[in-house]
Amino acid sequence: MALKFHTLDVFTDRRFGGNPLAVVLGADTLSDDQMQTIAREFNLSETVFVQSSTRPAHSARMRIFTPRSEIPFAGHPTIGTAILLAELNAPAHNGERDALVVLEQAIGTVRVGARLRTGGAAFAEFDAPKLPAEAGVLPPVDVLAAGLGLIPSEVGFENHAPICYAAGNTFAFVPVASLEAIGRARVNGSHWERAFEQQGISGVYVYTRQCEHTTSAFHVRMFAPQIGIAEDPATGSAAVGLAGIVHQSDRLRDGTHRRIVEQGYEMGRPSQIVLTLVAAGGKLASVRIGGSAVRVSEGTIDV
């Protein structure tokens, strides 16, 4: 059996940047083991398998696999899959196509608005299916710093301190004082295991206010060797958790706040994630993740 697939670069408006994604269509008959094997073969941060929806009003069911395991939710697979399905299926009107793509995921139903424009990269945005919440306790700063190959004084800035947040996936969020220090962060052998592998987290998200671009609010990196991702070029699901930290630590007033998060620069895969927070009544009311994507290749895979 031959299944059609597409690859896209997500959270970028040009090819060969952003976070690469493989999307396999017509995957209803594949077993879990087959999907995991194919994801390992693509060897990207995530591979999506598109299946028939369980409800007529929904666009598709999608399952998300890293090279090592299935995960319930991820940002760049959601953006990339929605844009691909919109490009393949949405009718055009005066060279413009807007679509609402409703995706069934393990975390729940995710509704994605896609904007397609002739001659430009498609853009999509979705409301996070879960709001971020604190989850778990991290070791002391000296242990965390050693796990990242940094010194303790390089961890933390202003009133930002390491914390665990979950919004479908659980991440350790580690603020770093400077762009220079974040560039040196790495998975530091046995020190990493002591700092992060006993916490039940999906990955470690390091962030700083110092950025490559003046339009960006945060420069970030994400390491997730536990699930087969040495480093991720763009991590939308972790950006949802960052929204909780920004609301809490920066003491945002009620209203809508937009932040650009840059990632992937150390990997040569520059990415921009549009993070929108809505605060009401002193609480975080909603989080939206947005970004562009471009198709790169297509083909068939025999299973």
Rank of each mutant, 00 (worst) to 15 (best):
D98A: 11
L25D: 00
F73C: 06
R55G: 03
N43V: 02
H76G: 11
L100Y: 05
R61C: 12
L100D: 09
G119N: 12
P139D: 09
A145V: 13
H76V: 13
D33T: 05
D9H: 09
N43E: 01
R55W: 04
L116G: 03
E96S: 08
A114F: 00
I71D: 00
R61P: 06
L144V: 09
F65R: 14
V23N: 03
L144W: 00
E125H: 04
V137H: 08
N19T: 11
V110R: 09
S69A: 14
I107W: 01
I107C: 04
L116W: 01
A124T: 07
L84V: 12
M62L: 15
L144A: 11
T12A: 03
N94L: 10
H76T: 13
L88V: 12
I79C: 07
D9F: 08
E125L: 09
E41V: 02
G108N: 09
V101L: 07
M35E: 07
L21S: 03
V101K: 05
G17L: 14
E70H: 08
P140W: 13
A121G: 01
F42T: 08
A60D: 07
A86R: 06
A90W: 07
R40T: 05
V102Y: 04
P77C: 15
D33M: 03
V141D: 04
R15G: 11
V48W: 05
A122R: 06
